[in-house]
């Protein structure tokens, strides 16, 4: 194996889940630290400076901000450390909150060990990881149809190509399959996905807020 081993920190409040993730990761990913609440997560990340942090969206402790709070309090090391959000939650605003706080992607906890290892490698190399569900959230938030109002800020809408990529990911295509389908390179797919991630993080689009608010529980 020519790739170097990637150091990760695993943040989740369920010990059983941490053990399961550790066992399922392949040899290319090494868990160097664990944390089970907001404060210990912030401390461990600052101490170990891992390449990737696997971060649960719902965490106890701190000011009750969960994963998004960890991201905010680790903003000073954000240049070295990349975050991948893990969640069982289907609630859109939870996911969008951690992404907007700076996570490089979002995967569901039902993901297989192989896929998770690949996602960690992808995040480590600076790319974004979109699960089908996150792609669905993005399409829902930005409007799935191509003819949304023009004249908005460039950050506030998806290009036709980005939308096409998102739709394929939502349909269950891997990056490789998306590349094959659109006759582009995997690198280009990754560029599109990173661009969408940036828009999701930076867009001031008011619909995004309204949309997330409309999905609030109860």
């Amino acid at each position: 194996m020519s790739e170097s081993v990637i150091d990760t920190v695993l943040v989740d409040d369920h010990r059983m889940f941490r053990a399961g993730v550790k066992a399922s990761l392949d040899a290319g990913v090494r868990v160097v630290g664990e944390a089970d609440d907001v404060d210990s997560a912030v401390a461990v990340v600052h101490e170990l400076r891992p390449t990737v942090v696997l971060l649960d969206v719902h965490l106890p402790g701190g000011d009750g901000g969960g994963g998004a709070e960890v991201l905010r309090r680790c903003a000073d090391v954000a240049a070295d450390v990349r975050f991948l959000a893990l969640s069982v939650s289907d609630a859109a605003e939870d996911v969008v909150a951690v992404i907007r706080a700076g996570a490089r992607g979002y995967v569901t906890k039902a993901i297989s060990g192989e896929d998770l290892s690949n996602a960690v490698r992808r995040v480590a190399s600076g790319d974004a990881v979109f699960s089908p569900r996150l792609a669905g959230f993005v399409l829902d938030a930005f409007g799935a149809s191509a003819d949304v109002a023009t004249g908005d800020d460039e950050l506030d809408r998806l290009s036709a190509r980005e939308r096409e990529v998102m739709r394929l990911i939502a349909r269950g295509y891997s990056y490789r399959e998306v590349a094959g389908e659109l006759f582009i390179s995997i690198k280009t797919v990754e560029t599109h996905v990173s661009a969408v991630l940036r828009k999701l993080q930076l867009s001031s689009r008011h619909e995004l807020t309204r949309w997330a608010a409309a999905r609030r529980l109860l």
Partner: peptide, 12 residues
Amino acid sequence: PPVSLYLEAGPT
């Protein structure tokens, strides 16, 4: 598996 299902209800 895995089987993926995607539904999109657009304007057209």
